[in-house]
Amino acid sequence: MSGYMTGILTVLSINIIMAYAIFLPAAAGQLNLGGAGFQALGAYATAFLSAKYGTPSWATIPAAMLVGGLVGGVLAFPLLRTKGVYLVLATFALAEVIAGAILNTTALGGAMGLSVPDYVGANVPMIAAACVTLFVFYLMATRFGLVMRAAHDDDVVTDLLGANVRAIRVVAFALGGALAGLSGALYALAFSFVDISTFNATISIYVLLYVLLGGTQTAFGPILGATFFTLLPEVLRSVLPQVKAFLAGIFGQTGAIAPPDESWRFIILGLLTVLMMIFRPEGLVTRTFIERLKGALRGQGARRKGAVA
């Protein structure tokens, strides 16, 4: 495998895990706009343990998950008391506080960042991403997943039907924290360096966007969203210069043409977001879509046992 390919696969794996970290609370109806904060916790936990104590990666990775999960679980209680806009703001604020705290802790390198002596190859993030994907698919197929999805649709009635919505949401939030911690740990180990400015509000926004665009009703959504938005810049990197050259050719320009600005990919992400919210606000992959797909595979004739009453 070429270095370029392994690089992309590493980033893709980390992004998929991060997508599931945001997906779990979102599937239960809670938007977390502070994903980067939890990712930073995991990354710095790993970096610190590795740099200070030389802890091997098989121990730092679970430690990072534990830190993310614990912080998520403990803070879920006050956080999830807030609703709607308040929850979005609170998670956003939490990420800023975490980033600020790390920035001001000299033991964590402050603004200088922290070198990670340990290193893992692309296979570890890839295996981790596969495991996380399987885990989330399993979780969504359990009664726990059922209650999560129900709470997303109508938390009041879900509670009335006998499910402890609060407990479910706290667990979903904590699991999300642990997964974000894992993705942070893998980031630290794959790039051997952590810098708090990497885990900024923009990252939180991107992750939330591609999870919502992928769709939060099924576990297919995040993997699709993450893959699409990780590979999009790579595709654009090769396609955009050609488009630009082509357009320049039409306008009669010749000679060397500067490659287009990196910023275009964000504009494309922004445009897709706006268009998706207009035409398919529930995300690319919806529950109905999956059922239709299954129905198509099964054959239309067998779909209904009898006529609809």
């Binding site: 109806g29 938007l31 979005v88 939330l208 919502l212 910023s263 964000f266 922004g270 606000p281």
Partner: peptide
């Protein structure tokens, strides 16, 4: 359509999209 929890976030998400568009157009 349903009034579920992520549906109410639609304008917020769109506005995040616009944030990316406007800021990056100015950057370019």
């Amino acid at each position: 359509k349903y009034g579920d929890s992520t549906e109410h976030a639609i304008p917020l998400v769109s506005s995040l999209g616009f944030l990316l568009i406007i800021e990056n157009l100015v950057r370019i």
